[in-house]
């Protein structure tokens, strides 16, 4: 004969049943997860510097902040392009080596290296995005910064490519691998792009 008590199901002999133990453990785990600060943190690496690849880290960063997460994005190597003051000039896209890119007409890869292809592909992508009303990179950066996303430029790759701190947007922070890993170890969500 089992009785319902505060601790769960207890047999007539006063033994706590296996079911009760399982229930207590489940409830404790759920409660701990709700309090776990790591589920409210995201750490993202942005390592690519073309127009198409600038989108995913910024979209995810702005969204993760909208979902109430403390978010850091660490920009390294070509990803540095995204947060420089003249990112609008720097972020381009080209069809060479990217057969997945939709083109107005079928084009052999060999022809994609012709002069003018990069500006053409870049303005094609920008106008397509504008027509569909996709947010611009500027809007995404602003949305991220407004919602306190931390944008961190990798100091080592800045030095390699000859960047100064003044080349970057206001509010950008500077740091290295340890700074990123220290954030990442406290976050359940870590993404490399």
């Amino acid at each position: 004969m089992l009785q319902e008590t505060e601790a769960g199901l207890v047999s007539a002999e006063g033994q706590v049943t296996e079911e009760a133990v399982r229930r207590i453990v489940r409830e404790e785990v759920e409660a701990a997860f709700k309090k776990d600060p790591a589920k409210n943190k995201a750490a993202i690496i942005a390592s690519k510097g073309t127009l198409d690849w600038a989108y995913p880290p910024l979209i995810l960063a702005a969204t993760s902040a909208a979902l109430g997460m403390e978010t850091v994005v660490f920009f390294t190597f070509y990803g540095l392009n995204i947060i420089t003051k003249d990112f609008e000039k720097k972020l381009k896209i080209g069809p060479t080596g990217n057969p997945a890119m939709p083109m107005p007409m079928p084009m052999p890869q060999l022809l994609t290296v012709m002069p003018g292809m990069v500006p053409m592909a870049t303005s094609m992508m920008k106008s397509k995005f504008k027509k569909k009303n996709v947010a611009t990179i500027r809007e995404l950066i602003e949305a991220a910064q407004e919602s306190d996303v931390r944008l961190i430029a990798c100091q080592m790759t800045m030095d390699v490519f000859g960047y100064e701190q003044s080349d970057f947007l206001d509010g950008v922070e500077f740091g290295g691998a340890a700074m990123f890993m220290s954030e990442a170890r406290k976050a359940h969500t870590t993404i490399f792009i």
Partner: peptide
């Protein structure tokens, strides 16, 4: 209206 992912959620959160 007219906004695409992720903007509806990003702006709604604001």
């Amino acid at each position: 209206t007219g906004l695409l992912c992720p903007m509806p959620v990003v702006k709604a959160a604001k």
